[in-house]
Nucleic acid binder design. Structure first.
Lengths: 171, 171
DNA sequence: AAGTTTGTTCAGTCTTAACTGAACAAACTG
DNA sequence: CAGTTTGTTCAGTTAAGACTGAACAAACTT
């Protein structure tokens, strides 16, 4: 947090926003707030600080962290001389989010395509199911376009934000 | 339903799939099943049949129907000589779904843009928030592309499926 | 009129998942 | 070694919203 009370208010506000947005995308609200905090602060944040500043239990932090890690949106870091884990945004979290969304959309399309395949050849329902499949298909295609846009526009800075922190090797 | 037990199984399967897909998109499962049933059957389905065939209460049908109507995904019809309401898919439900998604995405982007505006000019957080805003922006733009694709590809048949049914004028 | 069919509403139940506190294991410190 | 800090796990609570049954109003039928 900053020493400017005004900025702190904006920050809290932003964190709440990301919490709500993430919730609408199927993540728990706390995970969204963590994500928002990492965006706003820009530096690696300590595990304990996440719990303290967001006023949630360590258990909640732990499980939300796990979700965000699994989705490739954040990275766990360590700091020599400090036993705590630190977290920062992954290198290109937005591309990764889009990629995940695209995969799920494509999976939906494939499921519908399967249903169509299993239909007898003359089935008059096939056309309508196909419309539905095409909907998912074009959604998927569009997300790929968005992915390319974002990847082109983001030659993401390769500088680590803090030389003392180093990537944690997990599995 | 058809008289072919095989097709009936495929049909039920499909209806369950649409239920799950819709659920992942923030609609109640029953609403998704109704949507799926309307896709598969192709004809207008009576209110009572929705409750019976999906084995859910009329109350659930009523509220899910309301959601689907509000989103512009289905239409209520009447049949002269029949007191029941009938339902069919709206003319281009997929375009409408994409439009809704696009609006919500754009609204998210705008909220973030607002936060950025409220930040003092020299704030070092601005760049990171802007990345986040651009993510939503390109997602929104991509959905518009999908919309155009779908609208171009769907010169939707203008023939009513059943001459006896007529559009219900609601408000 | 009384009775029926229809869809909605509302209060309450049920389900699911988010969230918590406490117990725990691992890694440290003294 | 005993004691602390750290993150995870697990059992249980809480909260949100999906779903139901019953009461209801409106539009019919007889």
């Amino acid at each position: 947090m900053s020493n400017d009370p005004n900025i702190d208010a904006i920050r809290s506000d932003f964190i709440e926003k990301t919490g709500l947005i993430s919730q609408s995308e199927g993540l728990p609200r706390i995970a969204g707030r963590i994500f928002g905090m990492l965006i706003f602060d820009g530096q690696a944040v300590a595990f304990a600080d996440l719990a303290t500043k967001l006023e949630v239990s360590r258990a909640s932090v732990s499980s939300s962290i796990r979700l965000l890690e699994e989705r490739g949106l954040i990275k766990r870091m360590t700091k020599s001389g400090d036993r705590q884990d630190y977290f920062r945004l992954a290198t290109d979290p937005y591309a990764t989010m889009l990629q995940g969304l695209q995969k799920r959309t494509q999976a939906n399309r494939d499921e519908i395509a399967e249903t169509i395949q299993s239909l007898p050849a003359n089935s008059e329902a096939a056309d309508r199911l196909n419309e539905y499949a095409k909907f998912h298909e074009s959604k998927s295609a569009a997300i790929i376009v968005a992915l390319e846009t974002i990847r082109a526009a983001a030659p993401t800075s390769s500088e680590p934000q803090n030389a003392v922190l180093k990537e944690h090797q997990n599995d």
